[in-house]
């Protein structure tokens, strides 16, 4: 019965289901300032939203790799990288010292109870989303293996061409 209800809903909406979009979630940045995730959308410019945690080794490998390539990517595609930490209270105080020590120039947001991650349908980290200038998710990847950065770069070029 409930399935029928959902099926009805999905059918009635099917003509109008859009691509995934950045949902509105209020988060804090590393300075303690409030940010809404809708503000991450930059008029016409791409944003790479990367969910990570200090206890996630592949996440740190991914973001440390992006950090090396970031100046080139910014110059060529105008992309902004946003690293969203899902560290909870156990490790949230480690985020700023870690980020500063490895010298990431990304915008870093804190999502300690995974409100943004849930809204973005993230199950595991790392999970990376490429968002276009209108807030649409145009590409995503749930994993990191060395070399994935080339795929990200290709997607960035495709988006900004």
């Amino acid at each position: 019965m409930w399935l029928l209800g959902v099926a009805m809903a999905v059918v009635s909406l099917s003509a109008s289901v859009h691509a995934q979009q950045l949902p509105a979630v209020a988060l804090k940045d590393l300075d303690g300032k409030a940010t809404n995730t809708t503000d991450l959308v930059r008029d016409g410019q791409p944003t790479l939203v990367c969910f990570w945690a200090t206890w996630c080794s592949p996440c740190k490998r991914e973001l440390n790799t992006y950090a090396e390539l970031y100046p080139d990517w910014q110059e060529e595609t105008g992309v902004e990288i946003v690293a969203v930490s899902i560290d909870d209270q156990r490790s949230i105080r480690r985020v700023a010292p870690y980020v500063n020590s490895v010298m990431w120039d990304f915008k870093v947001l804190l999502d300690p109870n995974k409100d943004f991650a849930r809204a973005m349908q993230v199950i595991n980290v790392p999970h990376t989303f490429l968002v276009d200038g209108e807030g649409n998710v145009v590409w995503q990847h749930n994993n990191y293996a060395p070399g994935d950065e080339e795929e990200v770069y290709e997607q960035l070029l495709k988006l900004t061409e």
């Binding site: 409930w2 399935l3 029928l4 959902v6 909406l13 003509a15 109008s16 995934q20």
Partner: peptide
Amino acid sequence: GLFVGVLVGSLGLVSGQTEDPGRITGN
């Protein structure tokens, strides 16, 4: 099921002609 279905369904139908029909995401 009916609650969610009818809610979502009716919103979908009502909004069928408007600019923002809403969207469904999932995992």
